[in-house]
Amino acid sequence: MHRFANPARFTRIADRVLPFVAVAALASLGIGFYLALFVAPGDYQQGESVRIMYVHVPSAWMAMFIYVAIAVASAVALVWRHPLADLAAKASAPIGAGFAFLTLATGSLWGRPMWGTWWEWDGRLTSMLILFFLYLGHIALMHAFEDQQRGYRAAAVLALVGVINIPIIKFSVDWWSTLHQPASVLRLDGPTIHASMLWPLLITALGFKLYYLVLVLLRIKSELIAARLRALDLAKLSAT
């Protein structure tokens, strides 16, 4: 399988797909942000600051989505040992960490006028903070070994353990936060959200997904080039 899994073919397909995905990502982000900033109404309570939501919420979705994607890729890598799955997991983790960080930063900015503090130990933000730590652990483990293969395997096991633990962590943090303070003001998941806010949200969320796809493809391509350089070095080594 490994001998014949062909990186050149992946690169060819990626090159063909990339322009379309990139254009689609730009278009949906453009439309989404236009709707979010100029068309969608402000909130009668929160005013204009509610527009932070259009970055905050899709980022949070992406941070969770990417962790699950890494776990799926990790399972594939461990069971079938497909090298592309290893690369996908490695390429995704920093992007997921970036989205988690963006969620925390926008949450803090949004919370400032709401709570009067930069940080509140709100259940959702706290869970996201822990997710961010899980990402950092994954990235650190991925790069902790001289042998990249070991980094792939160890990080894959960690991702699977993490994904099983995330619901437990989420539950425990909710348990803890309801014990200590009232429910969050950032609740948006009710079915009552108005269409004028929902559409921009969904379109920016789509844009974020496509943007992630572009980044992952680019990062896997650059990993492949780096792997090729290493292989050439090794070939030189065994030729001498």
């Binding site: 950092l136 483990l141 353990v161 437990i168 425990s172």
Partner: peptide
């Protein structure tokens, strides 16, 4: 140094309960 980074986030539920 790596162990705390991996393990501490997973310890949070046990700590809470």
């Amino acid at each position: 140094v790596l162990i705390p980074l991996l393990v501490l986030p997973l310890y949070i539920p046990a700590l809470i309960f």
